[in-house]
Structures are given as C-alpha cells and as structure tokens.
C-alpha cells in the first residue's frame, strides 16, 4: 500500500473517495480509511495498492503522490547500536 492525497469535498467519506477515484475496496486500505489532512482546503490522504496508485498517476489531476511513508521510531533512549 502507498500513501496518496486527493482533493475531496469537506466531510468526505471512504465511499465518496472510492467513487471519485474509481477504486475498488480491495485496492484501498479500508482500515486506514480517509484521513483529513487539511479539511478547510479539502485535502485528504488514503493508502492504496501500488497498482491503483500507478493507474491514478495517468490522471494527475485526481491525486498527488505517492508519498514517502517512512518508519518512525522513538527518539530515545539513545542507542549505541544500529
């Protein structure tokens, strides 16, 4: 799954995103859902399969990404090993 962003109306739901982007449920991380990044400006994030992301890049106005989704870790205690 890869992270993408899309523009949707305020209060958008996963079903709305699926319709707008013409995605099937199995192509989306349903548990992750649609995350409001900047609801005032209609910016949302979701995680989709790499195939779906590739297909969506053919219509760049529909989405932005894929975005890096790096591993994050606690900043402590400081370790000497890797």
């Amino acid at each position: 799954m890869v992270l993408i962003t899309v523009r949707l109306p305020r209060g958008a739901t996963l079903d709305m995103a699926l319709r707008e982007l013409r995605l099937k449920k199995e192509e989306v991380d349903v548990a992750y859902g649609v995350v409001a990044i900047d609801p005032d400006h209609g910016l949302y994030g979701l995680r989709v399969s790499a195939m779906a992301a590739h297909r969506l890049t053919a219509t760049p106005e529909a989405m932005d990404g894929p975005w890096a989704d790096p591993k994050i870790e606690p900043m402590g205690p400081p370790r000497k090993d890797r």
Binding site: M1, V2, L3, Y32, G33, V35, A36, I37, P39, G45, R47, A50, P66, A68, D69, P70, K71, I72
Partner: peptide, 20 residues
C-alpha cells in the same frame, strides 16, 4: 510491508487528523 513506501508515518498522520 518492507519497501520504502510501507511505514508508519501515515499512522501519525491519522493521529493528527483525530487531534484536529
């Protein structure tokens, strides 16, 4: 996952959406 695209920053993003 395991590729450069599979990680956990997206979960922090969801957490921040909840905090909003």
């Amino acid at each position: 996952g395991g590729s450069a695209l599979d990680g956990l920053l997206s979960d922090a993003m969801a957490a921040f959406a909840h905090l909003r």
